[in-house]
């Protein structure tokens, strides 16, 4: 150690030959190398495209009732027809059309609720993690209180109280599902708040807002996106649960949970009325979870470099 300075050499900075692979190339390779992520993204992408294009893809009006066409079985049944590929429901509405429009509802609710809860949870978690001390004590108390509440029960009670609708479900779930965001944001912020790049920004006179939003947030975003996928799936399932119980999205909207609920009287003899929306729900939630798991793996430190 001591002779490191006595043999001071004026070597030029020749240590500049690290292989410089573009960041997006590395990400792309890892993305393609992760089978679950690839599959999840393809399925999820497909569902999103179908939902967006629903008005053009749906063969019928999802709200159009036709009493003479009630409970037509899907095309693979002997009595099925190509007119209604997935059959019709008890009011004679085209099931495929309702399924496509239902995807819009599920995705809208999942995304909006996750965004609202993400905003709440991230704000609370970052503030608690960054400031520590009393701020942390108060926010941790709020998080604990929230964790002590059974989500489904509270959601049921609240929606019974204020009445169900699409907006209500979004707001309700948004206000309930922020706990994981807060916990993750808090712990990742705690790990970073003493990092020297934060100290450097402080010395430079950057405002606290700048430090939190521009220096810290980009570094915890990947962890938050993983939580976001989990909470999206969570919100979609909860919406289906609420709608199934009649406390969520109200008829005649084509929510998948509502479709299952409306079909439950027929489930022993006409299995497809609940199988079709049930499988759709399962595939969507599975795809989102695959994406979430994959993103988490891609951000894992052992996968770095």
């Amino acid at each position: 150690m001591s002779d490191s300075t006595s043999t001071v050499s004026t070597a030029p900075s020749a240590n500049t030959f690290l292989p410089v692979v573009p960041e997006w190339r590395r990400m792309m390779n890892r993305f393609l190398g992760h089978r679950g992520l690839l599959m999840g993204s393809i399925i999820l992408g497909l569902i999103v495209v179908l939902a967006i294009l629903a008005p053009w893809l749906a063969p019928h009006d999802p709200y159009l009732q036709n009493i003479s066409q009630r409970m037509i079985p899907p095309v693979w049944h002997e009595k099925g027809s190509w007119e209604h590929i997935f059959g019709t429901d008890k009011l004679g509405r085209d099931y495929l059309s309702r399924l496509l429009y239902g995807a819009r509802i599920s995705l809208t609710i999942g995304l909006s609720a996750a965004l609202i809860s993400g905003l709440i949870g991230t704000t609370l978690g970052v503030l608690a993690g960054y400031f520590g001390g009393r701020v942390d004590a108060v926010i941790s108390y709020i998080i604990t209180t929230r964790l002590a509440m059974p989500v489904v029960l509270v959601a049921l009670a609240m929606s019974a109280l204020v009445g169900g609708s699409l907006q209500m479900v979004i707001i309700l779930l948004g206000l309930l599902l922020w706990d994981r965001f807060a916990v993750v944001a808090r712990s990742t912020t705690q790990q970073l708040r003493d990092a020297e790049f934060i100290a450097s920004a402080k010395v430079l006179g950057a405002s606290t807002t700048y430090i939190l939003v521009r220096e810290l947030l980009p570094n915890i975003l990947s962890a938050l996106i993983v939580v976001m996928t989990l909470e999206m799936a969570h919100a979609i399932l909860l919406e289906a649960t609420l709608s199934f119980l009649g406390l969520g999205v109200q008829p005649p909207m084509p929510s998948w949970g509502l479709m299952i609920s409306e079909g439950k009287a027929y489930m022993f003899f006409k299995t497809w009325v609940i199988a079709i929306p049930g499988i759709a729900l399962m595939v969507l939630v599975l795809a989102i979870n695959l994406v979430g798991d994959g993103l988490r793996d891609m951000n894992a430190p052992e996968g770095r470099n």
Binding site: A195, E196, F197, A199, S200, E215, N219
Partner: peptide, 12 residues
């Protein structure tokens, strides 16, 4: 201005 010890944590 400071120069910190750990160049791995001093750059965002």
């Amino acid at each position: 201005q400071p120069i910190f010890q750990d160049p791995y944590s001093s750059l965002n």
